[in-house]
Amino acid sequence: MRVNDLVMGVVMALIGAITVWGSRNFPAMPRQEFGAGTFPTLIGGLLMLLGVLLALRAWKRGDLGFSWQGEFAASRVFLCIAAVILAVVGYLLLAPLLGFPVVAWLMTTLMIGWLSSGRWGLSVLVGGVATLLIWLAFVELLRVPLPLGVLERVVY
């Protein structure tokens, strides 16, 4: 998935400009011209400069605006990105309610089932075992407080 360097350059220059603008009020050290704003301003300024250089270089080359490079169809790549984002965001929203065991099992089962084109028996089994192992390792052994959600009422 390639975006024209012209666009990338403009985006980088914009990020640089926002950084410089956001650092304008950081105070200098007493009796110094340097302070908390020095580095952010420098980084922002350089980002603006290099962003503009990147954009100019692409403009001179006459690159295309957006092109698809790679051996897989754009739809497949976007679907995969969406699936990962959906899985993580879904976990973040649902785990505090339903608990880690339920959501992790559901997430891995759905993903394995989808990627293996419908081997649901395998995905339920692997998802369950993986969730159990991670729970044992992180919660029981390493004491990481993964959320239990509604299961808290069941367990305690």
Binding site: V88, M111, I112
Partner: peptide, 23 residues
Amino acid sequence: PAVLYPLILLFCIVGAFATNNSN
């Protein structure tokens, strides 16, 4: 890979969470 990649993703989530116990 169909089995491995979702498991790696789950491990990533738990690993990132474990740093500060924070989503």
